[in-house]
Design a protein around this nucleic acid. Sequence first.
DNA 1: CTGAAAGCGCTTACAG
DNA 2: CTGAAAGCGCTTACAG
Lengths: 335, 335
Amino acid sequence: MPLRRPTQRDIAAATGLSQTAVSLVLRHGDVPAVSADARARILKAAQRLGYVPNRIAQNLQATRSHTLACIVPDITNPTYPAMVRGFQAVSQAAGYDVMIFDTDAQPERERQALNWLLQGHVDGVLASFFHIAEAELAGLVRRGTALVLIGRPARKTSTQIDRLYVDNAGAARAMTQALIAKKHRHIAMISHPLGPGAERCRGYRSAMKDAGLRTIDIPADGFVQDAGMRAMAEFLAQRPLCSAVFAANDLLAIGAMAAIRAVGLRIPQDIAVAGFDDIPAAALMYPALTTVHRSEPAMGRMAADMLIAQLDAHGAERPGRSIELPYQLVMRDSA
Amino acid sequence: MPLRRPTQRDIAAATGLSQTAVSLVLRHGDVPAVSADARARILKAAQRLGYVPNRIAQNLQATRSHTLACIVPDITNPTYPAMVRGFQAVSQAAGYDVMIFDTDAQPERERQALNWLLQGHVDGVLASFFHIAEAELAGLVRRGTALVLIGRPARKTSTQIDRLYVDNAGAARAMTQALIAKKHRHIAMISHPLGPGAERCRGYRSAMKDAGLRTIDIPADGFVQDAGMRAMAEFLAQRPLCSAVFAANDLLAIGAMAAIRAVGLRIPQDIAVAGFDDIPAAALMYPALTTVHRSEPAMGRMAADMLIAQLDAHGAERPGRSIELPYQLVMRDSA
DNA sequence: CTGAAAGCGCTTACAG
DNA sequence: CTGAAAGCGCTTACAG
């Protein structure tokens, strides 16, 4: 046992034919340039040696990696695996492998991801960056890497990058208005400034302002459950006037629910809670979490379609499409 | 804008030096074989052209991909992202990229994953297969791919594959005994025959048998929430005698809880529920789910360590280690 | 100090 | 029908 992959040269040596003939047969099967006899011998030897083409070599030759990447801030946030699933389904059906890169929403890890992309590992990438600015992506685009960005609509129409987003501000505004309609007057927002946090806060503020209500900001230091729990606990310790809390995502909301319960308050009677994302756990909480639903799998599928379209166009056209995806308010028992 | 990556040849052309010199400087920096002046010109040109080495070419040359893979049955089951995180942390710190492959627990998708591995994309792989038999992995091992399997202890000590597992049967047995200790006599088990399901059922059966109790099997057609809900609903429709349900994983348990509530029964007063995995949602359910905890991130980290050790040993030693990881029963309110 | 050469494993023109 | 040749972008001996 050679502990080495058999190559076309090995097959050529075994059959006494040229490596060219081996490549031709293995790649194109019944090719007129090789006799039926030679072909049979090649296929038999390939079978016997357990030959599988080295994809890395094929990729180098093709100057394409046949791989797409998905860059996400936190794969343990259930909203992302759902998206990844949809992305993989479409990508793999189209013959692309998928790599997932988790940045932990850290600036240096996002830089690392960007550098990794520049190294040519992938033909295209679906990215959700929290720190990397658009200008930094110019180099990537310039060398022909297909790119779809998640989560922020284009600032200027001039940019050449495809985008996929939900109206975070609009959705947050709608949810805030729904809370106001339920007679809440003291509505706080737990959020984190990064990623979609800013836009969601903006929507909340705009709804509060329109209703003549005062905003109450509860800053969290991340988008995870623990951050929500800590932020809410600290807030509650000040014995504030607050009948509802809107969290910038479901994990924060779930953490906040734990903090509320920990001080003996009831949800929604004492404090109502709403989240954002509609992760699977949201419907299963007690009380079930009111939240904003998006179709993450559809987002992933659409992103893959856009990347493949870009690659099929061979960089010929690069329209910089910005596609807005729908959302729905899901009013459950927590608010 | 060339829509093509700059290569070492481009830098050589720009500086009038040889491609060899460019490679030497870019790879080794201050190398005696190149003059300080030449080196400066090369670095400047590389900077100006935005040169980043093509990792695919480097990998072909090195006959190593510097990539590890994680093959999981369902990335949307929160138990796997937790493991992936630990795996990535160690892998990336050691200079390996990580690819994630989701098989959806389908036989054909697992075959696809195996074939993909054979194509040489990765140096090592952490795999959780439900269908692929060990014998089918021989080819992979023979060509030097490092391998760590999750979830099944070695049948024979002779196999040459590293393994990482928890004592599924023992844990299920312990949980069943805990339910029996709580005076439950009619304990059903919801499970699925694949993956860890069989072992967990075995533990359940052994505990029931020892206690002189009759087993009650509720077959599910997968390890997801919906499957748990359907299976439990169907079971409840028969108005069975049953005071506790043990589910082979948390997603099944959560689905079962929904089905129990749907027919107006209370948890745990009418039917107690226990799960397996301790996904983050388990602690947040109402009532909080009693379950079996494992440290998934530690499992991922350890797997990465084992793969890297195998690769560092250059296939010299391949001990076929089987490492058992600890588990803990987490008794919460649902049982 | 410098560059021509061979090679990683493949593909695809190009001569015979 | 068949094989020698060039090339994908790199690295590393090997001559000068």
